[in-house]
Write a protein that binds this DNA or RNA. Structure first.
Lengths: 346, 346
DNA sequence: GTATTACATGCAATCGATTGTGTAAAATTT
DNA sequence: AAATTTTACACAATCGATTGCATGTAATAC
């Protein structure tokens, strides 16, 4: 009934008459221990069911081999894939991952940062909450020499690693695609303009319009907070009620884009003929909705892998605290039915 | 440039001339330290930027306040919501969560179990890999007195906590619903019959048919390995090519169900008129696909919350190692368009 | 005014692994 | 055979927080 008491290197030492230090060294194949002794010790360890206590090792080495992850919410396609990429890479390198959700609340993010810092994480991967505009709570990691990797939703200025896509470019390309398909009035669902992710996408949209000699109509631009389907539905309804409704829509995420498609259908507005739509992220729903949603790829798993690698390969002795290392990944326009006004190929 | 060295209770002790033990007690409001001293110590701790080292505390107390999670893959709707529920509950109780994916491979699951056990997790939440039929790698937790909560994909026999839905009932209800809608030949996409989750759903399906006096046609029953859209598509194609194709389909997950709907549409088979479909899980895609997919709810977040609570409330002194505590959650049939043959209400 | 109790704090061991330094014995060199 | 180097291992401190026990002082009781 009682729990098996844990076997430590001291138990082993006593049992087979070697010192704990020899045991410790033998178990990690330290060269100063003879082959014979090493084999003997390992065998005994096996037999006695010895299991290393990683907490003790972590404390002694003051490194936990753990990567902390701070995100808004796990149960979103992009985020869960991002985490998946981080975890896979971390695990293969012998690292654990600790996860904490902010639920997009700044205060949660701050307290989570504290907890993770106190947990002695070896590195931190962060995708900021919607509310975050102050980044002081990440200074503590910097001070402890713990590398911080911001991914996707990143601060404008913070000397650390950043893993992002070129949101401006993606926004430009998405909009350009609609223009190429013949759209004349293109609406935009933007996310919070406090986040550079959404700001950049919007700027790409604006510049694409300008480059095509099209006017920017502020009535066609919505700034959402969460880019939820509710927000998307409501805005679409308004757009369709305009005297001069748009014939194209670039949404900063797929959720709102899908709701726009559904709303259009409900209003007997044909997609893409009367309203061409392109989203962002390539969520699973994008290929399921009818008509299927054109969108921008968001390489979540790969971004996770790269983020993890940044931490794993981080050189603690590098003195360049004053440099930001930014990795920018490519995105692609995926053309599906929701925007295919004239092009039939592809 | 150099990292700020961490402030420990010894630094504090030296600075303000108290012993480390007093510091330690004061910081956690131990009653044997006077109010005045406590206040003074806390103030000093604040000023010197003291941060507790949770590793040290964990080692000393041999409890890490960490919940380990073992799942197949994070980036699936059910799993990510499950994790979300666990994390939220754990965090509010001051616990961290460590995640590891098995990618549905048994060997990964075994090695992950070892890692988490060595990490001294306070408890473990597990949803088994597809391949798992041997559960010996969970014994080590039992031996250490670490509570294990199996959720959703659980072992048939293992004395521990289990958090599940009534899959038999759900399978029965889903099938019964199709029968009520007038289906005469109902196909079934089953998952691996090595997993009781899918076995139970299938048994519910079989019994519903029998109770309705309908014959079971093995040609209409597919056993899938991953229940992927590829498998679903292929099987649907076969089913529709039968001389006597089914007029109803109960799929053990939404992914395959959606692929069936899309395949049917491609073949000009009307859903639900010619083929009524019901899925399982209520993934986001279920309400997006056209026609919208009827399905069975799978209370992922709630299951996560309960799983976490089982661990948080676990009494280590309880001697009932020989009892399994099973929590069974209710599911509901969500009727959408894909199965609404005659009922128009609701 | 002495005895008893309560209160506030310090001492030192502990959790388990790691590692710099020291040392005896064995191996090698000359 | 003496000198030198190498090999193989042990000692003891360390990481930082925790806690049972001891101790000294102040407060209360008789």
């Amino acid at each position: 009934m009682s729990h098996k008491k844990k076997v430590t290197i001291y138990d082993l030492a006593e049992k087979i008459n070697y010192s704990p230090s020899t045991i410790s060294r033998a178990l990690k194949d330290h060269k100063s221990i003879s082959k014979k002794t090493t084999k003997l010790i390992k065998k005994a360890a096996q037999e006695m069911g010895y299991r290393p206590n990683s907490l003790a090792a972590s404390l002694r080495n003051s490194k936990s081999n753990t990567i902390g992850i701070m995100i808004s919410r796990i149960n979103r396609p992009f985020i869960s894939s991002l985490i998946s990429g981080i975890e896979e890479t971390a695990r293969l390198a012998g690292y654990n991952v600790i996860i904490s959700q902010s639920n997009d609340l700044f205060d949660n993010e701050v307290s989570n940062a504290k907890v993770l810092c106190d947990s002695q994480v070896s590195g931190l991967v962060v995708s900021l909450s919607m509310e975050t505009t102050n980044y002081d709570h990440f200074r503590q990691f910097e001070e402890m020499g713990v590398p911080v990797v911001f991914v996707d939703r990143v601060p404008d200025q913070f000397n650390s690693y950043r893993v992002v896509i070129d949101n401006y470019r993606a926004g430009y390309d998405a909009t350009k695609h609609l223009i190429d398909e013949g759209c004349k009035r293109i609406a935009h669902f933007a996310g919070s303009q406090k986040m550079n992710v959404y700001r950049d996408r919007k700027n790409g949209y604006l510049d694409a319009l300008r480059d095509a000699g099209m006017e920017v109509d502020e009535k066609l631009i919505y700034e959402f907070y969460t880019l939820s389907s509710e927000e998307g539905e409501k805005a679409t309804q308004e757009l369709l009620s305009l005297p001069d409704p748009p014939d194209g829509l670039f949404s900063s995420n797929d959720t709102a884009a899908v709701s726009a498609i559904l709303c259009a259908k409900k209003n007997n507005v044909k997609v893409p003929e009367e309203l061409a739509v392109i989203g962002f992220n390539d969520d699973p729903v994008a290929s399921i909705v009818d008509p299927s949603l054109s969108t921008i790829t968001h390489p979540a798993i790969k971004m996770g892998e790269i983020s993890a690698k940044r931490i794993l390969e981080h050189d603690p002795d590098s003195l360049d605290k004053d440099v930001a290392e930014i990795t920018i990944l490519n995105t692609d326009v995926i053309i599906r039915d929701s925007s295919r006004k004239k092009s039939k190929q592809n």
